[in-house]
Simulated assay, not measured.
Amino acid sequence: MGEPTRVRVLLLSPRNRLLLIKYQNIGPTGVPRPCWTTAGGGRGSDESVERAALREISEETGLSLVRLGPVVWYGEDGQRSADWKITFEEHFILAFAPTETISDRGWTEHERNQIIETRWWTIEELRRTSETIYSVGIADLLDPLLSGNYPAEIIKLPPI
């Protein structure tokens, strides 16, 4: 524990599609390793998972009328930042967007330099893609959530 904490948002559209963001994922070596991940980011020590999720959703999508669901997963991710030798402790929260129309107006300069693309994905597209997506196995993890079957306790994901 004591590692940087993050919130990851499983943002679902009215069409039951998941928003993913494709990052260049450039480490200190300067070599890009593009990957897709959910919306989200850093969480302050005085910030709840829910508050951080709403802030990140607003910054990354421009959406404000989002309904939050439960925190469903917890994971430790050292893969995306392996060159930096950082392991992020991440809480994944379910959220429901009122629309698939998003805006990049709230992006920081860093996000503008790192983000390649945003896209809403169906579960079938997540299963078929050969692109790198974090969390690993997200389609299988997401499947019961799409049916409203939420875990009774937060699921601990295998470390990556």
Rank of each mutant, 00 (worst) to 15 (best):
F92H: 04
Y74E: 00
A139F: 12
L68N: 07
V7I: 09
V66M: 04
R127T: 01
R80Q: 14
L20C: 04
A82V: 12
F92Y: 13
W107C: 13
A52K: 02
D104K: 03
P28K: 09
L18Y: 05
S48M: 07
W36I: 04
I133V: 12
V66R: 02
R33V: 06
G40D: 06
Y23T: 08
G42V: 14
A39R: 01
R17H: 07
R112A: 07
I116S: 07
R127P: 00
L146K: 05
I26H: 02
P28D: 10
E117H: 07
L18W: 06
N113R: 09
Y74Q: 01
G2L: 04
G40S: 03
G148C: 08
R17G: 03
W84Y: 08
A152F: 03
S45N: 09
T129F: 06
R33K: 12
Y23W: 12
R43W: 07
K22C: 03
G137L: 08
W107G: 04
E153I: 07
T132I: 11
P70V: 04
G106S: 11
F92W: 08
E125N: 06
S58N: 02
P34I: 03
I26R: 12
S81F: 15
A95Y: 09
W120D: 02
T118W: 05
R15F: 11
L19H: 01
N113I: 00
P70E: 13
R33Q: 10
Q24D: 02
I155W: 00
E89G: 05
E125F: 07
L145V: 00
A152E: 02
L157H: 09
L11F: 12
W84S: 06
L20Q: 03
R127E: 09
N113G: 12
P28E: 09
Y134D: 02
E89K: 09
I86D: 02
K156Y: 14
V31D: 12
E117M: 06
V31Y: 14
N16A: 13
G69S: 10
R119Y: 13
I93H: 00
L145D: 01
S58A: 05
D83F: 14
I123P: 01
R33D: 10
P144A: 15
S13F: 11
T129Y: 04
E131W: 03
L19R: 00
G62W: 09
I138F: 15
D77G: 03
G40R: 03
L11G: 10
A82Q: 13
R67G: 03
P70H: 08
G62P: 02
I133N: 01
A139W: 05
S135A: 09
A82L: 11
H110G: 13
E131L: 07
I93N: 00
V71R: 14
F92D: 00
L146A: 10
T108E: 09
E153Y: 15
H110K: 13
R105K: 07
E76G: 03
T99D: 08
H110V: 14
L146F: 01
L19Y: 05
R6N: 07
T37E: 04
S13C: 10
R127M: 03
I115S: 08
V136H: 14
A52L: 15
R15I: 02
E3L: 04
F88V: 05
D83L: 15
P144W: 12
G40E: 01
G75D: 02
P158A: 15
H110A: 15
R17F: 08
Q114D: 10
T122L: 13
S48K: 03
T87W: 11
I102V: 15
R119W: 12
